[in-house]
């Protein structure tokens, strides 16, 4: 099936098998291997990308269902030679060890910073709360890090959230 997809600002027309996930399309057809396959079941967040600016697990999205949409991967976060503030903060705070979860953490954090409103740990649901470390931990719970770099990931995101 033919689909049209904008990836990191570039339009593509692609013939895809309906079974192909967005993650496999990005990695295998477009050579964008930043997004990682950790579990392929929606449980680890390593495949997180932005679809129409909102974070999503690309392993759970069928490529055919993304027809006409625009996707941003970790490769599209930086502005030319200028790192995205989250990328700079991750380096500054030493927020990774092996780096496998990092592309997903970065895309997830970029999406999360644009998501208004309360989370499950917000006391008053009418609030648009400040992104304390407690709030960041809850909002980032869809991204696992097998190296356990969570402490530094939270401080990197906190710096950008300020």
């Amino acid at each position: 099936m033919d689909i049209r997809l904008t990836v990191n600002g570039r339009p593509h027309t692609l013939d895809v098998d309906p079974r192909m996930s967005l993650l496999d399309l990005l990695r295998e057809r477009l050579g964008l291997i930043g997004s990682k396959k950790g579990c392929d079941h929606g449980q680890c967040g390593a495949c997180t990308v932005l679809v129409e600016g909102r974070r999503a697990n690309s392993c759970l999205a069928l490529a055919v269902a993304m027809d006409g949409l625009s996707v941003t991967t970790v490769e599209g976060l930086a502005d030319g030679e200028h790192l995205h503030p989250l990328q700079a903060a991750f380096i500054e705070h030493d927020a990774f060890q092996c780096g496998y979860c990092t592309p997903g953490q970065l895309c997830s954090a970029a999406g999360m910073l644009g998501e208004p409103g309360p989370s499950a740990v917000t006391e008053n649901l009418l609030d648009d709360p400040e992104l304390t470390p407690h709030e960041i931990r809850e909002r980032m719970s869809g991204n696992l890090c097998r190296c356990g770099a969570y402490v530094n990931i939270v401080s990197a995101i906190s710096e950008v959230a300020r």
Binding site: R55, A56, N57, G111, E115, M140
Partner: peptide, 9 residues
């Protein structure tokens, strides 16, 4: 329920 990513989808 679920995670931020999954709730978005």
């Amino acid at each position: 329920g679920a995670s931020g990513q999954i709730r978005n989808m």
